[in-house]
Nucleic acid binder design. Structure first.
Lengths: 341, 341
DNA sequence: TTGTACGCGTTATCAG
DNA sequence: CTGATAACGCGTACAA
């Protein structure tokens, strides 16, 4: 008996409610939104009835009328990366507390795709946009054009003057080198992220600056590039172990790459930290596991997401909110992948 | 100079385009949607102009008019769990290829929250709903009422007659025991998931059935319950190691719990697999890492997401599509956490 | 305080 | 093939 006698399953709209109650649509609307200009008695009566019949306003129509959708788009590289998953979870939880929903997009680190997503955000009238992904300068122009609150997370964009929260990635790269220096390392390699990632680039700059400050030489052949995945770290290790001249330490753009890299090294008999020290970035949960125990640099995901949401809500509530840039301090977590040389 | 001379930043709407071109809104709409009933010449002209001025239709208005939003809601427990993150990523990629966007919700395994989310889906006119989460029977009623395509992933719901794709979780639990039996184990414990998770329950049933079939006794004191998180596995291990009488093998509801559990065991000097064999479920990427190398049961995430999307698209395209239930076969992946007793 | 009428941007129906 | 116009459901000035 699919769809039996009672076809009355059709959802009520505000006009139905108004008719059934013998009042006007405006009154229903006012009762619904807590708008002033309605007697307490009528409001109570309407709300009670609404609750009874289970009426809920159509969000689409509300949004079309108001010109704003209570959805915030979250664009990031790949949610399978625990760092992003943690950010996603926190941001989603915090925003939902303020009545916003989150639309998730994985750009897969593809610039073209990302630009397309921003365009999509525009035609969708999202309430706001949170970007956590690599990008090029052409993005800036499109963002300025966007006319909706934007928050950049852990990324710098040239000429972008909106709000952002990020780790001091330069410092992060710098203290990674410092830690290794103190352990006596002088030949230090680097695995970077995508060349368009400002976070990766800044870490690299910090690394180069530290090398330079302490008179250490830089070797192009000890540079690799990763796309932040475990598998890639593993592949890089294969190449790495076959090199005749190896550095005694590697700084690696993220924990996931480092974990894959270590896996590959171990498989080829390279012991960590006896033969090679490793420092990476993120401090994802699994980096503390027995058998992994990465020395890594914490990005303070919790603070990052809190600030990101706070910045977004500020812009959402006041039109005239001036942009803020919040910079978090990196924290070195020493575990067991670094040792004196 | 915020908002300089050119305030003309306002987005064009279909009426603007029509006027500028001296045609009717209907023609623009037809050109846009590939609707028949317009000459090729006019269509080309309109499309060219639209492309030039960069006009894009307002999706909200489209949806309100059509009564359907091209967004599919994805409700799951916690995206920080790699199993869910993988599903999310795949589902999002596949659906976006068909022009749908994905709205992500973390129910945090909370039934109340989940029901609220389903209600939200209703008032939002989503195109469809994909559910990957634990739930109780009261959910079914609400789903039937929903009047939008629903696909259940890896969950069974009493009296639910919609489409679903799931692992044969009973068999999964059964073959976990079989594997341990072949290695000579007879005292086998079990760490389950949330009591409302049908996946966990089915695995447990398979486990009990296998024990019973082979005359092994069941011991209540070797049962634990996890919320699928690493930390929880770790906590359980603390309790486990202090037990005077231990089983020689444990079956654990998911890889994450198993990883935390192993971590805790190792920390207390319990060697795996020498002192304790472990079989878990999921086969997430990190379970194959050196130093972890879990013996686990693969759920075939890729197939699961492909089927989920296919089932959704089928329902979306044809009103009269009858529900399908797809059952995937579990695959045992033997690594290094199981050994002969 | 309450109700009326119009606008939001698009699609769909029906004339021409 | 093309164009005017009525929905879609709700918010909101404006009028009563």
């Amino acid at each position: 008996m699919r769809r039996g006698i009672e076809m009355k399953n059709k959802k009520y709209n505000i006009s139905d409610i108004a008719k059934m109650l013998g009042v006007s649509e405006s009154s229903v609307s006012r009762a619904l939104n807590g708008t002033p200009g309605i007697s307490d008695a009528l409001r109570a009566k309407i709300l009670a009835f609404i609750d009874e019949v289970g009426y809920r306003p159509n969000t689409l129509a509300q949004s079309l009328s108001k010109g704003r959708l209570n959805i915030i788009a979250l664009i990031l590289g790949d949610v399978r990366n625990p760092f992003y998953a943690d950010l996603t979870f926190d941001i989603q939880r915090l925003l939902s507390e303020s009545g916003y929903m989150v639309m998730l997009f994985n750009s897969e680190y593809d610039m073209t795709r990302e630009l397309e997503l921003i365009r999509l955000a525009e035609q969708f009238n999202f309430a706001g946009l949170i970007l956590i992904t690599a990008k090029e300068s052409s993005t800036t122009a499109r963002l300025q054009h966007l006319d909706m609150p934007v928050v950049l997370v852990n990324r710098i964009l040239p000429h972008f003057d909106g709000s952002s929260v990020l780790l001091d990635n330069f410092k992060a790269g710098y203290i990674a080198v410092m830690h290794l220096l103190e352990l006596g390392h002088s030949k230090i390699g680097f695995i970077s992220g995508h060349s368009v990632s400002s976070a990766s680039n800044q870490r690299y700059e910090g690394y180069r600056q530290a090398l330079s400050n302490f008179g250490l030489s830089f070797h192009e052949e000890h540079m690799y590039e990763s796309d932040l995945k475990i598998e890639t770290g593993y592949q890089i290790a294969k190449d790495f172990v076959s090199q005749p001249e190896k550095p005694s330490a590697m700084i690696i753009v993220n924990d996931l790459t480092a974990i894959g890299f270590m896996d590959g090294c171990k498989q080829h008999g390279l012991c960590i930290p006896q033969n090679l020290s490793i420092v990476s970035f993120d401090n994802i949960r699994m980096s503390s596991l027995l058998g992994i125990e990465l020395t890594t640099i914490d990005q303070h995901v919790d603070q990052m997401s809190e600030h990101a949401v706070a910045l977004m809500l500020k812009q959402l509530s006041s039109e005239t909110h001036r942009p803020e840039r919040i910079v978090l301090d990196p924290t070195l977590i020493v575990r067991k992948t670094t040792a004196p040389i």
